[in-house]
């Protein structure tokens, strides 16, 4: 090292430990996911991880970067896990592979690799899949068919013929289509698909993981808290205005990827803002967009698009939210 300068001592945090902690805190949610929806998700996570590491390794070699150092920062694995957890667990394997490849190669390395990607790679991967394969991406494993391992496996390995046998719409999707059929919210809420408690348990798992991330100071409160509070406020207001058209807040907080997004997706440091006020604004923006897309938009879930749109605004948000320097008026 040329001209060694102070400071000569250093704290213990490293990118690797941060990313490992993120992976560890994803485990409670993952376990509950497997418990309620079967091993399909585990297969998806595994295949995404392998694809991500492989793609990262090849790209690093092409870019002539030290593979060992950049692979052991585990950022590729985190991207893979987040993407896999967002994709329906009964999606065929090539969906996961395609999404992961797109996330790592295009969204991450085409923009300059770790630290330079403008957009959240996992969300870019998800958005591409959602646009390309909308039918598969909005069907969820029906928990009542959880023991039908053979069927799941055959779907995973490529056959989508028997898809509808074990799949059902996600609660968000269901709400949307049923509202179009003329039903009102309270009717829909009483139906079993909308009351998917298994899904709410998984959300709870991610919530627990998120709390651990907060306690270990891997993330700050700004993003998750603001995000959840904003979603709560907006959903409550609309529900108050017309309870027949708009679902109550708990439906929005516990369904879809809300919890996963609050603690793990919108907290991606690279593509997010850096200032405290910027983080608050960023979270409000995403929460608002998520609600708008879910309720008024064409897609049942809007997190990916909301995050990508907010990512575009980050440089401006950062510039406008610079905190006051010590002693400056």
């Amino acid at each position: 090292m040329i001209n060694l300068q102070s400071p000569f001592v250093q704290g213990s945090s490293s990118v690797s430990t941060i990313m490992l902690l993120v992976l560890l805190t994803l485990l409670p949610g993952l376990f509950l996911y497997i418990h309620f929806f079967g091993l399909g998700i585990l297969l998806n996570v595994l295949i995404a991880t392998i694809t991500a590491i492989f793609a990262e390794f090849i790209i690093l070699k092409i870019r002539k970067l030290p593979a060992k150092i950049f692979l052991t920062d585990y950022t590729a694995v985190v991207t893979a896990w987040l993407l896999a957890l967002s994709i329906p667990s009964i999606a065929p394997w090539w969906i996961t592979v395609l999404g992961t490849l797109f996330a790592i190669v295009v969204a991450k390395h085409f923009y300059g690799g770790i630290g330079s990607n403008l957009f959240n790679p996992a969300m870019i991967g998800y958005a591409i899949l959602l646009i390309s394969f909308p039918a598969v991406m909005t069907k969820w494993q029906n928990p009542s068919h959880i023991n039908d391992m053979g069927l799941s496996l055959s779907i995973f390995l490529g056959g989508i013929d028997n898809y509808d046998a074990i799949a059902s719409a996600t609660p968000l999707d269901y709400l949307k289509t049923e509202l179009l059929q003329g039903k009102n919210v309270s009717q829909i809420m009483n139906e079993p698909i909308a009351k998917l408690t298994q899904m709410q348990w998984v959300s709870f798992g991610f919530f627990i993981g998120g709390i651990i991330l907060l306690l270990t100071k891997v993330i700050t409160w700004h993003l998750p808290l603001t995000y959840l509070v904003t979603l709560f406020v907006i959903a409550s207001i609309f529900h108050l205005i017309d309870p027949n058209q708009f679902a109550p807040f708990q439906f929005h907080l516990l369904n879809g990827g809300t919890m996963l997004a609050a603690f793990f997706i919108i907290t991606d440091p690279v593509s997010g803002p850096t200032t405290p006020n910027g983080k608050i604004f960023f979270a409000i923006l995403i929460a608002t967009l998520v609600y708008v897309i879910r309720v008024f938009g064409g897609y049942p879930e809007g997190i990916a698009f909301a995050v990508i749109f907010a990512n575009i605004c980050v440089p401006l948000i950062d510039k406008l939210s610079q905190p006051k320097v010590f002693g400056h008026e």
Partner: peptide, 11 residues
Amino acid sequence: KYPVYKIDKSS
């Protein structure tokens, strides 16, 4: 002087 480090090729 401008700090020089080996690894950080990408940036």
